[in-house]
Amino acid sequence: MKIFAYGSNMNLNRLKNRVSSAVKISNGFIEGFSLECSKVSIDNSGKATLIRTDNKEDLVWGVLFEIDNKEKPHLDRAEGLNFGYDESVIEVNDGKEFHKAQIYFANDKSIDDGLKPYNWYKAFITEGAKENGLPIDYIRKLESLKSEQDENDERRIKNENILKIK
């Protein structure tokens, strides 16, 4: 099945930690949305979500991946499906054609505009965007997201180590 990763799952190390079958298809974008890190999470930080703007000029870039259907429950668990994240199918434009792909997005009850992502979470997003060659203007936009230090050293170190795997 195809998934569209627009947040931390753009980072291949992060995604492969969750679903080993992930294979990149292409980069792509969706129109009429913006990316925010306002999804409430159990670690009290903000996670990435899509916010509908209905403005065709607003683009969220990401990466289309193919994953084995048998591994989808692993990704659902990692993403917290039905615990703040819902899922949908969306059309992703890769510049040549449209692909139907599954996405996760925060439901209305799980959004808090006052949240910030932890530095390591923002790094998953920005490093994933860079390693996949997303447009430089979009990468700069991601780099401008405000973030904060995770005071839980164990969690921070664990995630920083995933970022360092090559």
Rank of each mutant, 00 (worst) to 15 (best):
N44H: 10
K109H: 11
I67W: 02
S21V: 12
E97G: 14
D58G: 12
E131L: 05
G28N: 05
I165W: 02
W61C: 12
G84A: 05
I157P: 14
K72H: 06
S38H: 09
P135L: 09
L15C: 06
F124P: 11
N161L: 12
K146E: 11
D113V: 13
I139D: 05
E87V: 15
Y121I: 10
L81H: 02
F124K: 11
V89W: 06
S110R: 09
S20V: 11
S41E: 03
G95T: 03
E151L: 13
K56V: 06
K164Q: 07
L15E: 00
W120C: 06
I111K: 09
S26I: 09
R140H: 14
K109N: 14
S88V: 11
K70H: 04
K56D: 03
K158W: 01
N11K: 13
K116E: 08
E97Q: 15
G95E: 02
M10F: 00
N152F: 13
R18D: 01
H99Q: 13
I90P: 13
T49E: 03
S41Q: 12
F83A: 13
G62Y: 01
H99C: 13
G95F: 01
D153C: 13
K47I: 12
E57K: 15
Y118G: 07
L59R: 07
T53R: 02
I157W: 07
F105H: 08
I42E: 06
K116W: 07
S144I: 11
S144N: 15
K56M: 06
C37Y: 04
T49P: 12
N93W: 00
I136A: 09
I90K: 12
Q149V: 13
V19L: 10
D108A: 10
S41C: 14
L134W: 01
A5W: 01
L142N: 12
W61M: 10
G7D: 00
H99D: 12
F65R: 11
G46R: 08
V40R: 15
D153N: 15
S45I: 01
I51A: 00
E31R: 14
V60W: 01
A22T: 10
N132W: 03
K122V: 04
Q102A: 10
D150E: 08
R52D: 02
I139T: 08
L59D: 01
I136G: 03
P73D: 02
R14T: 03
L163V: 08
Y104L: 09
K146S: 13
E71R: 15
N161Q: 09
